[in-house]
Amino acid sequence: MSLPLGPSPFPGVPERRPERADLTYRSPSPTWKSPEVPSPPDPGKRPAGRNARCLHGFRRRSASIGAANPRSPPHRRSRRWSGAGVARAGQLRGAWRGRGARDPEAARPSRACGPADQRRQPGERAACTPHMAAAAAVSGAKRSLRAELKQRLRAISAEERLRQSRLLAQKVMAHSQYQKSQRISIFLSMPDEIETDEIIKDIFRCGKTCFIPRYRFQSNHMDMVRLASPEEIASLPKTSWNIHQPGEDEAREEALSTGGLDLIFMPGLGFDKEGHRLGRGRGYYDTYLRRCEQHQRAKPYTLALAFKEQICAQVPVDEHDVKVDEVLYEDTP
């Protein structure tokens, strides 16, 4: 039994006052109700509000995207998107896919577009065009032929190399194109190439102008620079290919800037009787011959020097390879 509030009717008993909890929840109104307890959020319903968080815990934008926020700085306030603005955004997005096309119809299609049977499945290789297949076949054939020709050249003895080099030097000196040429470019031979020392000496003996290659090894660029004398070759620095050539910072006369060339002696790994040439894969001479066509009125005569072991039935070529005018070897008629 609880005692009533107010003064106690019993002597010595203090007055009973309401507790603190009663002050919090008691209401003088006869229609007093207990405070409402918020119900737990529905997991299937997305919360609302500008800074509300989505079901995954990340902050999401409010539904009124585009409405200007008065609390944001002027340069951060967004505009309400109109129908024209949305269409323009779609065109720009298509232009980015199409690398500059403003018309969405002209934009480059994505991987997902197109008929389902034409889409590339995950892990499937891209389709190979006939041009790509032909280029890959030529490149593989060149690699195989280069390996075979290097084996042939390694099998030639030093005596046989010297014999064929001297024979070709005599053929060159009796050649009509050599005799009437005044500005001649000739390569400084590597160990597996025809030796050109005797030809270089004869160029200076006849009073002709001699040019030698100067390669840039970080590119396919090559210049033909003037050689002062045959004795100068031994003093030139050597490259990683063990070839003497003038330094890149050394000022020398360049052939194309001073009148061009009349005759170019061409090195190579393999040749056929049609004039097709297989080089070492850098493209120095092919690039240089195209420069000659741009800087000279008359194309220089190209004469390749080869061992008879370097003559092939057919050399694989592509659109970048330039034919030589004549291949000179031991059995040349």
Rank of each mutant, 00 (worst) to 15 (best):
V138K: 07
L145R: 03
P28W: 07
G6Y: 04
P30I: 11
H320N: 11
Y301K: 04
E250I: 11
G57D: 01
A84P: 01
R60E: 11
H221Q: 14
A136E: 10
G66P: 01
T129Y: 01
Y284W: 02
S29H: 05
L261W: 02
F265L: 13
A95M: 09
R59W: 15
D272R: 13
D192M: 14
S235I: 02
K171C: 01
G260R: 05
A116V: 15
G281E: 05
Q151N: 00
C128G: 03
S8E: 05
I233C: 06
F58L: 11
C210Q: 04
P73R: 13
H131W: 07
Q294C: 09
G281W: 06
S8N: 13
S144Y: 01
G140P: 00
E248W: 01
L92I: 11
G85V: 08
P7Q: 14
E15K: 15
P246F: 05
P213Y: 03
W81T: 09
K273H: 10
E193W: 00
Q294N: 09
W96F: 13
R216P: 00
A136R: 11
E330R: 08
A158S: 12
F271Y: 07
V138F: 02
S27P: 00
E15H: 11
P11I: 12
R76I: 03
R53A: 05
G259M: 05
A255H: 00
